[in-house]
């Protein structure tokens, strides 16, 4: 299922994805206390904040993985928080791309199979999926380890594989949680350059969680989250 939500203009146009006033607690621990964030087509928004401030939680809520207790996440004409699970899953498959902080590569599958995974889940044929995966693996320079399994590659190679996988299905929104966490400066720069290039080329929206200002500087905008609430929402740049 694809929701019709790819506005062409990046500025002043409707945001592609907008979460507003999100609240969520894990038992007694409040993780989100009124967080808002919106991102437009082709725009990259950095979410920064100290450890445990709720960055990953916000990301998961925006992507429909966690259901906030209150608040809305608008994507196109839909409120993601009101969609049934099946449709949220379909959105994640077809419209969103992910780079997670933990445990994202499937250890049983080789690198190229991991990259092709979203396509296979969406029902793309084997050959076609491989071809498209190969393209992204080349751009992320992981072609050489295509046959390796996640247990046999370095943390940075794993992260680049994850980025390739996030981009392979031409997503409308890419969610990246610390995509450069395990990378050295140069490799991190390559990944970030690639991400921003892709955002530019294909008007992909990127929500980027990071704690490194240098990485956040690749974004068009920065949203700081402190103790579960966003400090500076919707501030225009320039």
């Amino acid at each position: 299922m694809t929701l019709d939500a790819s506005p062409d203009h990046r500025e002043d146009a409707e945001p592609v994805l907008a979460g507003s006033d999100l609240h969520l607690s894990f038992g007694p621990t409040p993780a989100l206390r009124g967080a808002s964030l919106s991102v437009g087509a082709g725009e990259t928004v950095a979410v920064t904040g100290s450890s445990g401030s709720g960055k990953s939680t916000l990301l998961h809520c925006l992507a429909g993985i966690l259901m906030p207790e209150s608040g809305q996440v608008r994507y196109g004409d839909h409120d993601i928080t009101a969609l049934p699970d099946k449709q949220r899953s379909a959105l994640r498959r077809t419209d969103f791309g992910f780079v997670f902080q933990f445990g994202q590569l499937v250890p049983e599958l080789t690198v190229d199979e991991n990259v092709a995974l979203p396509l296979r889940l969406a029902g793309v044929g084997h050959k076609e999926a491989r071809r498209r995966a190969a393209h992204w693996m080349e751009r992320l320079e992981v072609t050489g380890i295509a046959d390796h399994r996640p247990g046999e590659i370095s943390g940075g190679q794993g992260q680049r594989t994850a980025v390739a996988r996030a981009l392979v299905a031409d997503p409308v929104v890419v969610f990246a949680d610390e995509p450069t966490g395990a990378l050295d400066s140069l490799a991190g720069e390559q990944v970030m350059t690639l991400l921003s290039d892709v955002a530019e080329e294909s008007t992909t929206a990127v929500v980027l969680v990071t704690h490194e200002p240098r990485v956040a500087a690749y974004a068009d905008r920065e949203v700081v989250i402190r103790d579960g609430s966003t400090q500076r929402e919707q501030e225009p740049v320039r």
Partner: peptide
Amino acid sequence: RRAHMDVMRDLT
């Protein structure tokens, strides 16, 4: 931070 980030974004 805002001032720094503006410069950093520009530099980037």
